[in-house]
Design a binder for these strands. Structure first.
Lengths: 348, 348
DNA sequence: CTGAAAGCGCTTACAG
DNA sequence: CTGAAAGCGCTTACAG
């Protein structure tokens, strides 16, 4: 256990019991450098005997490499993030890296602490999703010295890599979908905290609507005031309430684009509770392709982001920063797709 | 960045520029030991100037403490696990600990590698959920020397702590629910990989049924052959298929207990696709209280486990192992609750 | 209130 | 093929 036995066996212990130098023991542990077969076997046996496992911390101290990266997300307990996390971790493991997971929970102080802790642990890089930190906070936390890949956010000096999902394209796809369905009174249900993300979605939506000769009436736009990192149920509830506001306001929408699958689900539930037929009276499209969206009733049309691939790509981008292969600031865009389901299509 | 500038500033750099010894610099960094206000200010300024951040690895090497724990789950991209992970991480952060997350993905080799990596990083303890490793594999991987909390699994020599959710109680609750609804032909839909977990659920179910004078006909029991760590959609599909088997077999069930919310959802979809009314013809109850379960149609009755609390408790148990406060092997049981919804109740 | 020395467990040149 | 020495960045007794 901990205190009683004290420390774990070290390389010196191995060396001593095998009658070789630490140096030689190290050679067999790392399988590098020439060692006679006889001594190799002897050392390996001692290792097995005393249950030796190399102390990675000590190794890192001298090699200056940890093979660890940090991943910061607002809240792993929301759809989207687990799939992204899997993508990151799978990519990382394939290259011998481990992942520190941090939930920022939409709390600035907590996010700063998490980043500082990551830096203290000398992670080789950080992937940060939806960071709400200001440029200076970010700089202070990581000292502007840890390679970073940011998703949904710009970087201070164009250092590192920015991954920007095609939110604008997503908004455009929804607009074209509505137009093709002959819906002329579209509405938008967004999230305030996601200002830049939301802005992109709305911009794509508005532009493509305009191109189809449809105006987006401001009376048909609602933004949910909310902080990041809310729970699953809280987001559904927020969508429910927002739909209430929209309807109470008397907005006669015949199509609704909700910027998040969970708020879309809430909005639909509110509409149904009021006896409004979905999609006949209001066609609804969400965003994010959460797993849930295929199993609600009516099944939810949504803009699908390749989440796993996004995580996977993020790690690859980070790795090329770590390797120093990439000098120029880079911007990666990932394109979404429309998945049309019952909530927007006439016939299920 | 990485190679170019080379290493980050060290405590020696701070000491040199502040004209003090490393020792004194260390005292102000750690806020421990007496330092005159003048030198403290001088040192702090230098720290800010050169952007010094203590190297936790070096510190850990001498203190023999890392304040890091490992968390191994089959697949974070399934409901249940994210909420548990949040509970673990929140509890850990409150005590100054960080969490290494590992997805075992139902792959034994990957799980062993993950554990070895954790040991190499000298995590102070490990929480492992649903490990499929044999006792010997587990022992080899962690050297029987890292404090562990296992969920859903026994420990080799009764070392550490075992958390066992009240699966048997859960099964009993479902049986009593069915009995009170007057259902006399219950069926069971389980997962093969979860043999011990499944066994408990089934045992509780069977016993309580018997107590109510109802027999569980083996023809009404199906077990899905499956490996651990499957995706969300794969589990729903598995439930869909299993329901098909049950119905094809001609089992005339009037109530179904599915051991997992996702397989329950799949089973319901299959039934509906065949024109079977839920709950009128078959009452369905799932297990796990996944977030989704409240939003499908009909909403899914389920056995609710306090997932977040489970994670939180797991960390606390681990901490008491780490502190050496606890010597005796401990077994913690967490009790579930029935959440009755439309899939089992006559009126929604 | 401050500092010189030793050591945590490893690897990296450098000799032989 | 093998080893003695130095050092990674820190903290811990021990002196003054």
């Amino acid at each position: 256990m901990r205190d009683p036995g004290g420390r774990l066996p070290t390389l010196s212990d191995v060396a001593m019991r095998a009658n070789v130098s630490k140096q030689t023991a190290s050679r067999v542990v790392n399988n590098k450098g020439e060692v006679s077969e006889a001594t190799r076997q002897r050392v390996l046996e001692v290792i097995r005997e005393i249950g030796y496992s190399p102390n990675t911390l000590a190794r890192s101290l001298v090699t200056n490499r940890t093979f660890v990266i940090g991943l910061s997300v607002p809240n792993i307990d929301q759809p989207f993030y687990p799939q992204i996390a899997r993508g990151v971790e799978d990519a990382a493991n394939e290259r011998g890296y481990s992942v520190f997971l941090c939930n920022a929970a939409g709390d600035l102080e907590r996010e700063v602490q998490a980043l500082e802790r990551l830096r203290g642990n000398r992670v080789e890089g950080i992937i940060s999703f939806n960071s709400r930190l200001t440029d200076t906070m970010l700089d202070r936390a990581v000292g502007g010295v840890v390679p970073m890949v940011l998703i949904n956010r710009e970087l201070p000096d164009n250092r590192g890599t920015v991954i920007w999902p095609g939110y604008e394209t997503g908004g455009r796809l929804v607009a074209e979908h509505f137009a093709s369905l002959g819906r002329r009174r579209p509405g938008y249900l967004g999230l305030e905290h996601d200002s830049n993300v939301d802005g992109d979605k709305l911009r794509g939506f508005t532009c493509a609507l305009a191109a189809a000769g449809i105006a987006l009436d401001p009376a048909r736009v609602v933004r949910i005031p909310s902080r990041l990192g809310r729970s699953f149920n809280a987001l559904v509830q927020a969508g429910y309430d927002a739909m209430g506001m929209l309807l109470t306001r008397g907005a006669d929408v015949d199509a609704l684009f909700a910027s998040n699958d969970l708020t879309a689900i809430g909005a639909i539930r509110h509409a149904i509770a009021r006896g409004i037929a979905i999609p006949e009276e209001i066609a609804v499209v969400g965003f994010g392709a959460a797993n849930v969206s295929g199993y609600v009733t009516p099944s939810l049309s949504t803009i699908s982001m390749p989440l796993y691939e996004m995580g996977y790509t993020a790690f690859q981008a980070l790795l090329s920063l770590i390797g120093g292969a990439q000098r120029e600031p880079q911007q990666v865009t990932i394109q979404p797709q429309l998945v049309a389901r019952a909530s927007s299509l006439a016939s299920p």
